[in-house]
Every structure is written in C-alpha cells, then in structure tokens.
Computed example of a mutant assay.
Amino acid sequence: MAIVAIFLILVLVLATQSAYGVQHTVGDSNGWTNAGDYATWAASNTFNVGDTLLFTYSGSHGVNVISKSDYDNCVTSNALDSYTGGTTTINLKQPGPMYFACPTFGHCSTGMKLAINVVSQSSNSPTTTTPSDDNNSSPPSTTGPPTQSKPTTKDGGGSTNNAKAMVVGFSLILAPLFVFMC
C-alpha cells in the first residue's frame, strides 16, 4: 500500500508541471536588459502553448507586445499590450509568432527585442528560430494563422503561481486521503 501511495503522489506532483507548461525566464539569469542576446536565447528554447514568458527588468525598461511590422521597424508606440513594473508574465495561449520590445527610446534598435514562435503542444517536431539582428527577418511560418496572444496578467503572474500552488496543495491533501481509503 505504501508503494502505491508514493507512486500516486509522484504522479500528481509530476502532472502539475505538465498541466501548466514551462515558465521561460527571458534572458535567463540576466533578465530583460539592453545587454541581452535575445535571438540566441529564443533559439535555445521551445515555446509551447500553455507556457509562460517571465520578463524581469529594472524601472528603466518595460515590455511591449507588438506586431511583426513594428518589430521589424522598432516601432513601440503602437503596442498591442504594454507592461511596466519590473516583472511581467505573458501567457502563451495560441500557436504562432509573437513579438516583444522594450519601449524605452533606443533600446529596441540596440537589440532589446524578442521574437518567438509558439508551437502547439501536439506538434511532433517543434522548431523555434528567431530573427537575426537585421530588420528584415522574421520567425518561421507556422501551421496555424499567425495570431497575437493576449496576456492574461499584468501583475507579474501571481495568479499562475497561485494556481500551481493550489494544485500541489490539493495533491498533498488528496494523496493521503486516498491512502487511507485503500
């Protein structure tokens, strides 16, 4: 019985991560700065529907979700969504390319911009490439229409972290109850 209980607890804990996707910290430990190499960073990650992007930045920066045209031309004044505050979590809800840039004057043109391609989790062979620093390249086309994903939180992702904590909490409560029932 104890082995079954341990197995069920492990399954519940492991299922929590797969149900909520992966949180990608943009720029890894360096965060969202004007010294980052976001093309290389994005190329080293696969972005799936259900994942999140975590932008961490200082008060002199921000995050704008922009169109491909605005990305190519470093126009941040037409933002689809705009975030400030030092921590921003963007939920990746739909497959297709997404574009981000810092709205601070001159930061986009010096490389503080990010292009990713979000793939469906059912995709067999996701590939993620990003544009080089020139303004004429773009992420690869996808099997679905290129649509912008609207982020659901502007508060740093607290609701996502709370949901994960609730699932883990329920798992820790329900697993022992199940053991006692057996």
Rank of each mutant, 00 (worst) to 15 (best):
Q23Y: 11
H24Q: 07
H24V: 06
H24F: 09
G27M: 07
G27W: 06
D28G: 12
D28I: 05
D28Q: 13
S29C: 08
S29D: 14
S29F: 14
S29Y: 13
N30F: 12
N30L: 15
N30K: 13
T33N: 10
N34F: 10
N34G: 04
A35E: 14
D37C: 06
Y38Q: 02
Y38N: 02
Y38A: 01
Y38D: 01
A39G: 12
T40G: 10
W41L: 08
W41Y: 14
A42S: 15
A42V: 08
A42W: 05
A43Y: 07
A43H: 10
S44M: 09
N45V: 01
T46L: 14
N48G: 10
N48S: 12
N48P: 01
N48L: 15
V49H: 03
V49A: 06
G50S: 11
L53Y: 06
T56N: 13
T56W: 07
Y57M: 09
S58K: 09
S58F: 06
S58N: 14
G59M: 03
G59D: 12
G59F: 05
S60F: 10
H61D: 08
G62P: 00
G62I: 00
V63S: 02
V63A: 05
N64W: 08
N64M: 08
V65E: 13
V65I: 15
I66L: 03
I66W: 00
K68F: 09
K68T: 09
K68A: 14
S69W: 04
S69A: 15
D70R: 03
D70G: 05
D70V: 06
D70C: 07
T76R: 01
T76L: 05
S77E: 14
N78I: 08
N78Y: 07
N78F: 08
A79C: 10
A79Q: 10
A79G: 10
L80R: 10
L80T: 12
Y83R: 10
Y83G: 04
T84Y: 12
T84W: 05
G86F: 03
G86L: 08
G86Y: 04
T87G: 06
T89G: 03
L92T: 01
K93A: 13
K93R: 13
Q94G: 05
P95C: 03
G96Y: 01
G96V: 07
P97M: 02
P97C: 11
P97A: 14
M98Q: 15
Y99P: 01
Y99W: 12
F100S: 01
F100K: 00
A101P: 03
C102Y: 01
C102H: 02
P103Q: 11
T104A: 13
G106T: 13
C108K: 00
C108L: 03
C108V: 02
C108M: 02
C108T: 02
S109K: 15
T110C: 06
G111N: 05
M112K: 09
M112E: 15
M112S: 11
K113C: 01
L114K: 01
I116T: 00
N117S: 15
N117F: 10
